[in-house]
Design a protein around this nucleic acid. Structure first.
Lengths: 231, 231
DNA sequence: GGTTGACCGAAAGTGCGGTTCCGGTCAACA
DNA sequence: TGTTGACCGGAACCGCACTTTCGGTCAACC
């Protein structure tokens, strides 16, 4: 076979995503997906070696799309790389993608063991680079203790809050994002206006790093040639 | 019977707590507790009408002790009521009490349905009062959007972080508490030194509110007279 | 050559007796 | 009068045979 239809692969992933949200990983049969697309089950296996790789591809596509969305905003307005804008935008974008939300909640019955370690590592590196660049350009306060942990812990609750209680379910997502932005800006950014030059520099830096991340994702999606190397 | 031994009640609760941590709510039999204390099972039922009330009492005692601990610190140093000190101290104190940690993690197999609504309500009121008092005395910034949600979401991640990943397991608790303190102080407190008068006022206010809370807890612990009113 | 779906075996689900466990009671005891 | 532990019944647990589901393969078909 050698180069299975990429457009068909996308239709398969579309169906997989839809079914995944409706029924959860365990209950989605490969045959269900195939039937939803209108192809034979064997055809699915021409694209990915097994079920798990198919769903990994789905999550990678989702991550790539999400990252692209943020990338687009940075290009439209470089000031988007300021921590408080970047983080609250990520919050919003993430919450509007049910699959991503399900993924990072680590819904165990949603996914088998989608611990894509390579990607995790790449994201970690990106985060480290992000922090270092920000610090170097003076866009993050230099007196924050244990910056990585601080950002992580301070942000986490915004993502997990509504899964644990519905106390704040009534608050619109945008308002929550504004609260997050306030907290980040006040606690992690220096007072006063940021230097436009620094912003432009960091935007360029971060932009290319994100582009690399996206292309890494995209590469992983359709490259699971069942027999050997990518076609 | 009328007034069963309060000291015996405490020994029962001690044993219950120990067993709870070792085996989880479901697997702890009332008989186990009784045997650990060296009394008959029936005697346990002279103190509490059923198993659930016993464990509710346990959690109330735990909460009361914890609150007492914080109260003591406030009395020793009124400046402890400053949000960043109060919140990070609570973080530390809480993390050092395995039962409380288990409780607020809502470990489902740890507790049946210990949704003590009355107490929840009391805590909510305390929290609201805390925020209002702080605002009125200028110890919390007045420009924080949606203060209740902001405090909640910003803090939550510190409590949940280490349950979700061991990425930061190596960081000592005290260091994490410092990070939390930094974030709260920077994002939620006004710049500059707090007014000593305001601090004293709030400490008095809050102190008595906490004392009321504790006495509310204590009342609930031993008051479950199986037949009728408290002895 | 690309595509398919019948087929295979493993694994998960289901139904059902039989057994154990355990919260709660209460007659007997000290 | 305070305390106990044998006792009761319901619920959870267990083992097991039977059934269903489903990931992955591959001979056949177009």
């Amino acid at each position: 076979m050698s180069h299975p239809n990429r457009e068909r692969a996308d239709r398969i992933l579309d169906a997989a995503g839809e079914l995944l949200l409706r029924m959860g990983y365990r209950k989605v049969a490969v045959d269900d997906i195939a039937r939803a697309v209108g192809i034979g089950k064997g055809t699915v296996y021409l694209h990915w070696r097994n079920k798990e790789l198919l769903f990994q591809a789905l999550m990678m596509r989702e991550s790539a799309d999400l990252t692209d969305e943020i990338l687009g905003r940075i290009k439209a307005d470089p000031a988007m790389i300021l921590p408080h804008r970047m983080i609250s935008a990520s919050f919003l974008v993430t919450h509007r993608r049910p699959l991503v939300m399900a993924m990072l909640r680590g819904n165990a019955d949603m996914f088998g063991s989608l611990g894509d370690l390579a990607l995790r590592k790449q994201q970690d590196e990106l985060r480290t680079q992000f922090e270092e660049t920000m610090l170097r350009h003076g866009l993050i306060r230099s007196d924050v203790p244990n910056l990585t942990y601080a950002l992580n812990a301070s942000t986490l609750g915004f993502y997990l809050g509504d899964t644990l209680s519905d106390e704040f379910a009534g608050i619109p997502l945008e308002e929550k994002a504004d609260v997050l932005a306030y907290m980040i800006r006040t606690a992690f950014e220096p007072a006063g206006e940021p230097d436009p030059g620094a912003v432009a520099d960091v935007a360029a830096d971060l932009g290319s790093a994100l582009e690399q991340l996206v292309s890494g994702y995209r590469q992983g999606i359709y490259a699971h040639d069942p027999t050997r190397a990518p076609g």
